[in-house]
Design a protein around this nucleic acid. Structure first.
Lengths: 233, 233, 233, 233
DNA sequence: TCTTAACCGAGACGGTACGTCAAGTCTTCCT
DNA sequence: AGGAAGACTTGACGTACCGTCTCGGTTAAGA
């Protein structure tokens, strides 16, 4: 088995998310030749998502994705340089809703909601496994690693950072808190349980992490019952 | 050696747990036929370790390990049920020294030392990458996952737990602290940086994690300079 | 030029024979739309000839020919229905000079000259290999086979038949000689050595074939020194 | 058996020439490891023969042969270095009976019989087409060409040469006749008609070739009715 | 002059087959 | 019976071309 390294990327190696952006030419300028089929794009991503969910990254073959998408293998290789790059895009398309950071009125509530939603996604969908496999793939493909950071890690962290900004403006935490370390500890704890499965990844865990974090940051206790709110969501 | 105290496989096959058992005969009783070559065992593990370090789990093939060990493929499969199982053993042989938990006299010092050593191993050897790949492999092989927990995760946690026991007996932390969650947050944070490489995995990070954890647990400040101790180690 | 008197395809498509027919309009009448580029025609044939000479029919891809000709693939397929058809045209453009049948004054001399020239072309250029590959291609493409006979085999034979007419008028051979069989034996022998390369395809061979043929046909010995003439050519 | 005395490849690889020979060791000495499956050998050759007959060399894919033989592609590549090499072996297995050279009592009869049988095979089976495609394949694969000569061309010629030896001993032809050239002319003529299909490859043609050849060699007329004999066979 | 038809180069399309690699299993001989 | 060797089937890899199609554009004849 084994995910298998990469090797041989195609010359263009394009990303999928953004259309062109590589043209300094006037707007509307098309590339020469037949344009890439957007339907093929969609079909490939849909097929990849299905296969990924059912069989994981290790059990996903370009061959099967191509067949399910009704597309030639070359059409995939023209767009993505490796299995990992394709999986990343397929993962991203689904991963957006994993990451809410709504204002619940308190730091505890915000964190509870954010980590709770993450835990929910990770435990009730295939996202958790895919995440783990993707993280491993990233370890052996530096190009993919760069994309991973740029398109997954940093956006996620940016999204969560507002929780701390709100807490600072509320006066709940000090302005000089090292947000990065706190995020690493909170979501790192979640990742740790997700990957090792040594203990349940549940709301009790979420609550404990939030409480410990809040205590560490000196956040005053709240009266609101964030956990109850979350559970009813 | 070995994390789990253990660890060889027993002679009967690919089990991972404990040898003994399949004959009730007196100790020293040999099974019929040619006994397994212990030299083959050693050669295989050595070869696997080399390949793992150089090429990672994804780039490791049983074929290459067999060739380098001067051994037939069947000889490997007779002992290990899969590539992951072999890699786990090869990893364990090297991983033991990643995990000291000496008594430094204070909770902060203990934690600093433990996490610092982990970070050192993860950043200066190939252990970090192998760890990540093994974690991914574990996601898709339930048998391997069980072994992983039994032989890696639980032993590690058990070893670290003494840090908390010492802190309780010192009166530094309350007796009802949820050790599991704290461990998840501390080493989860490390794992998170290791896998994503979005920020440096260095002593500043270690110190920040320890400080935040200590604050969260209400550990009184120390005068000792754990970080300095560690850095000089 | 050309062997078959040939040769353009007609404007309507990939036919190989003669245009005519699809418009009853007066000559010079142009079809609507942009006319086919004659420069593209030339570039394609030139590129095909180069590739054919360097890599043979098996190693020739339409893709490479198109690239070398600075032309789109469709521009080739608009003109030729298959790789074989294109190769046939490319071959014919070069093959014309393979086939002289000058009047040397004697049957032996004529035959010597004709077969000698054929042998020369077949052994000093890539024509021999191309010929063999084309012959094989012809076996599996009936349309190409028809063209092959019409544009290569029959023209060649027609050209050589004059040798026998001259011999009959000289009184050297009987009028009822089966020209076809003789031609098959003479050039068949050459083809046989060309394809199998079991023995050298040289002037000694040519001389032996001519002598044996002449003897079989009862041609009286000549005093002329055809071989010498040929060798000096 | 087959023409070349054939036939197994030697154990060292994909060579086609002679079976064993590389071991000076005592007979019965086996190589280490699992021996090649002779059943796989048979299945592959049988499948290749079928595909070759139905679709020709051009339409034969290793992939299909493997599937029909119930064998992995690697098992074929382990034995034959190329499609051509496999086709050659498949062809040889069938080609043996193409080449009788029985003693009919006269040179004309012998030649009639030999060429007649060749023509029969070439026109009533797929051997003719396969032959042509193989000949073309040989043009672009020097290794295959060497095998072709060694295992097809020379054995065939050797087999036919006895016709001339018998004729010499009968006193029908001179002892210094260039057998090679005569064979080239006789069978070259057949090949020429086979490949070009410009004229029928029938008994009239065979008779004409034999007559012309006999005349060229000064063979006295016979009373026997070779053609009749042949036709009734 | 404007429309229309057929061409043009470029390059993507769905496919087939390539020859290689590694998986885990099986079969031989040897120790 | 274990061990080394090397066969086996399976299945995916990434590449090369196939012959077709689709773009933005050009070129000439016909209206």
């Amino acid at each position: 088995m084994g995910v298998g390294g990469m090797s041989g990327r195609n010359p263009s190696g394009r990303r999928v998310t953004e259309p062109a952006s590589d043209d300094a030419s006037p707007p509307g300028r098309r590339r020469r030749g037949r344009p890439r089929s957007e339907e093929a794009d969609r079909n490939i991503l849909r097929a990849a998502t299905e296969v990924l969910a059912r069989q994981g990254l290790g059990g996903m073959s370009i061959e099967e994705v191509a067949t399910r998408a009704g597309v030639g293998k070359a059409t995939i290789y023209r767009r993505w340089s490796s299995k990992g790059a394709l999986a990343l895009d397929a993962f991203l398309a689904d991963a957006a809703e994993m990451l809410p950071a709504p204002d619940t009125g308190s730091f505890r509530g915000d964190l509870l909601h954010a980590l709770g939603a993450w835990v929910h996604s990770a435990t009730t969908t295939s996202a958790g496994t895919t995440l783990a496999e993707l993280v491993a793939e990233v370890q052996r493909d530096p190009e993919l690693a760069a994309d991973w950071r740029k398109r997954v890690v940093f956006p996620i962290r940016g999204r969560y950072r507002v929780i701390f900004e709100r807490a600072v403006s509320r006066g709940d935490i000090a302005a000089d808190v090292d947000t990065d370390v706190v995020l690493d500890m909170v979501f790192g704890a979640g990742l740790y349980r997700l990957l090792n499965r040594h203990l349940p990844l549940d709301l009790d865990f979420v609550a404990a992490v939030v409480e410990l974090t809040s205590a560490g940051l000196g956040v005053p206790p709240t009266l609101s019952h964030g956990a109850a709110q979350l559970a009813s969501a």
